[in-house]
């Protein structure tokens, strides 16, 4: 047992991983890029902070071989990587170089008594939970927000700077902010979601009016944005789109494919309005309204307004 190594290009996420790791092992080593990151991470109570240092300002993905080399040299048991776009890539490539197990976006990680590891992850877009075990080295990615960032008052972990070679084959040409319409679905308290059952251009006004009455954001399923182009792609909820946590989700003409429903799994109350009583959405609803949204929605908007 040589302790757990944690890595994220985002120091806040690295501090969260330090908390997760501290619950699993006595020795926790935080690996980071750059001196700035190391300054915040020395206050996490970690056994040590390892700074990978290279000339220039390489992209985080350029450190994959260096990180794998560090794991190998130190005989690390487990590497936790923050599950960001960068972290997914780094985790999988390090696992390939180490020829080791990888568990992507684990929700629960357990150290088993025989020295093996166990982790749980969701499958089928949240439709199932799989538990996997492995022994020997492993890489596990962990999503942001799974743990509180470690902060140990008075702690000052020793910092070790390791000069490494980086892979410069992929060159960054530019980095720009995405053009967005200012919608922040992730923090919306109420969401009205348009599905393919209500996806004629004239139907949007109907959804918009209900959203106005409820003080909700308008969202949609992926085909409404991608295939019909009725709403911008940042408004679609689902596994590859937005994940929302509202008090109220109202699905209009939403069939309820799991790639979509996983995106609002944490909603407090879910309402479905659909003509098809067998719509899969109704299986994950608090209120299943069987009926034509064209008829129900205006009545619902009026009833909500009547309460104001």
């Amino acid at each position: 047992m040589t302790g757990i190594y944690v890595f994220s290009e985002d120091p806040r996420l690295a501090a969260e991983l330090a908390t997760t790791a501290a619950a699993l092992a006595d020795e926790v080593h935080v690996v980071c890029l750059g001196a700035d990151a190391s300054r915040t991470l020395t206050a996490t109570g970690a056994t040590s902070v390892v700074v990978l240092e290279a000339a220039g300002a390489p992209r985080p993905e350029a450190y994959v071989a260096a990180l794998a080399g560090l794991m190998r040299d130190r005989g690390a048991d487990l590497l936790l990587v923050g599950a960001t776009v960068t972290g997914w890539e780094v985790g999988a490539r390090v696992a390939a170089l180490l020829d080791s197990a990888l568990v992507s976006e684990a929700s629960v990680i357990t150290a088993l008594p025989d020295g093996a590891w166990q982790a749980e992850r969701v499958m089928y877009a949240g439709g199932a939970v799989q538990t996997e075990t492995w022994s020997g080295p492993g890489v596990v990615t962990v999503a942001p927000g799974r743990a509180v960032a470690a902060a140990v008052p008075g702690s000052a972990s020793p910092v070790e700077v390791v000069a490494v070679d980086v892979d410069t084959r992929v060159r960054v040409v530019s980095r720009t902010a995405r053009v967005r319409s200012g919608v922040d679905l992730a923090s919306a308290a109420r969401v009205v979601c348009v599905g393919m059952g209500l996806a004629e251009p004239g139907d949007l006004a109907l959804a918009g009016d209900l959203a106005d009455a409820l003080d909700a954001e308008v969202a949609c399923t992926r085909p409404v944005a991608e295939d019909r182009g009725l709403l911008p792609t940042e408004r679609y909820i689902g596994i590859s789109g937005a994940h929302v946590h509202p008090d109220l989700y109202v699905g209009l003409g939403v069939s309820g494919q799991v790639q979509h429903t996983v995106g609002f799994r944490d909603a407090k109350v879910v309402v479905g309005i659909n003509t098809n009583p067998a719509a899969p959405l109704f299986a994950v609803c608090d209120y299943a309204v069987v009926g034509d949204a064209h008829e129900i929605v205006p009545l619902l908007a009026a009833a909500v307004r009547a309460r104001h």
Partner: peptide, 20 residues
């Protein structure tokens, strides 16, 4: 490299009040 020890369906804890 990994062994699957359990594979269970996710059952949403929703009330499923049907208004039909």
């Amino acid at each position: 490299r990994t062994t699957v020890t359990s594979f269970l369906g996710y059952v949403a804890a929703r009330r499923r009040v049907v208004l039909a």
